[in-house]
Amino acid sequence: MADPSVETIASGRCLVARVSGEMDYVTDPVLRPQFKELLSRGERFIVLDLSDVSFCDSAGLNVLLGAWRQADTSGAVLVLACVPEPLRRILQMAGVDQLLRVYDTVTEAEAIFGG
């Protein structure tokens, strides 16, 4: 199993972060600091591209919620894009889709920021 990663791409007015691998209790200690570092850059608009996330459990959800809270506290806007269907269902069941905005594509997410 490859370690999860967060790869960033500056794109117009947004910072796009492509998250890869599994998001669970095992990868939590790897991902949490990566998200913290990502959010400490001071970007105003952040799009998390989750197309390469192969698995996500409640610990992974907590990482996403923690990142969203950190962004919100710092005045940044964090949204999700390219969410795989199983993860989309988890977001809906947990009610997280009421907090985190979900877009079908990165382009669609960027468009809301005038990207």
Rank of each mutant, 00 (worst) to 15 (best):
S51W: 11
L65K: 04
R41Y: 04
V26W: 13
L15A: 02
Q70N: 14
S20T: 14
L50D: 04
V26L: 11
R32L: 07
S54H: 00
A59H: 06
M23D: 09
I9A: 11
Y25I: 14
T8D: 00
E37H: 12
L65V: 11
L65T: 05
D28S: 11
G21L: 02
I9C: 02
D49V: 01
R32H: 01
P33H: 12
R13D: 12
V47L: 07
D52F: 09
V47Q: 09
D28F: 10
L61D: 05
V26F: 13
K36I: 01
G42C: 09
V26E: 13
P29Y: 14
D28W: 07
K36Y: 11
R69M: 15
T27Q: 08
L61N: 03
E37N: 09
C56F: 05
E37Y: 03
Q70F: 02
W68N: 06
F45V: 00
L65W: 11
A59P: 01
F45C: 01
G21K: 04
F35K: 09
L38S: 05
A10G: 03
S11A: 13
L39V: 02
L61V: 15
A17P: 04
A59R: 07
S20M: 09
E37D: 13
R41P: 03
R18D: 03
T27D: 12
G12L: 01
C56N: 10
T27K: 02
L48C: 11
L38I: 12
V63G: 03
E37A: 11
R41D: 08
M23A: 12
L48N: 08
S11K: 11
L64Y: 03
L50N: 05
D28A: 14
S54Q: 11
V30W: 12
L39Q: 10
Q70A: 13
T27E: 11
S20W: 06
V47H: 12
E37C: 00
S40W: 03
